[in-house]
Amino acid sequence: MRPAVSALACALLVAGLAALPLFVGGYGQGVLVGLMNAVVLASAWALFSGPTKYVSLATVAFFGIGAYTVAVLTETMPFGAILAVAGAIGVAVALLVGLATLRLAGVYFVIFSFGLAELVRQIITWFETSVNRTLGRYIFIDLSATAIYWMLLALAVAVIGTRWLIERGRLGLAVHAIGDDEIVARHAGVDVTKVKLALFALSALAMTLAGAIQAPRWTYVEPSIVFNPNISFTALIMALLGGATRLWGPVFGAVPLFFFFEWLSVTMPGQFSIVLGLTFIVIVFLVPNGVLDLAEKGLRKTRGPNAGDARHV
């Protein structure tokens, strides 16, 4: 009966979340879009970086690619087709980066992902100014905040559902083996590079779509707007706070931090990145495995020393 109960709970949760924008005003709908975006990006980051333990600093590279593709293709084809093209470009870039770096040690990937957003931004800016002779584009796609929210919700369900499915199957086993010990995994016959590549492409696809779905909210788009490095940073920190190795960890991190960052950008915009940096350092030091792990340990302590020991190897 347990799986049926959880499935029902999930269905109720999604239905409740889908109904939410009908009860709040325009401002509330904007907040919901931001919140769901945070959930998608943090979950997508953790989809790859959680189990493989490869730290990706490139979230905004894909997010920006998605948003900018919409800006370029606006009015040339229906929105659904634009999303498909954006997703394809995001996956292509991920495969390119992944093929060059994921067969090597983790540092190569970190370094490449560190500069990827800036690299893409420079190339787009150069292309726009020297070939198209213009910088910045207008997006005329009529989509309500509620519609965008629903699309993001669907994307969040897809990302979390994909991770759940992966954890259950052969791929999940391979992924965990890589996270525990890559060399052993290789010897056990896991095609390590292919598994990492697949996860990275999936995670990039979700990030690209998140950027593309939200592009109509801006109306005016410029590379410096859509490639804002804070996006990479906040997605990472949210996933870490909740616990990147857990299915629901990123969600638990995204919700409180989204509101904290919103409050921060209103009350002290000048000190935003200072507080952001400090928050990050505190999280790495105090909750290195995420709040869910901390809560579980706390529960175990109150229940007695032996309860749940089987899970702790």
């Binding site: 600093l57 990145s273 507080v275 940096g277 400090l278």
Partner: peptide
């Protein structure tokens, strides 16, 4: 951990 902490420091110093 050091990648994460120094990434945080980067934002702190830039700010």
């Amino acid at each position: 951990d050091s990648i994460l902490v120094t990434f945080g420091l980067l934002f702190l110093f830039q700010g």
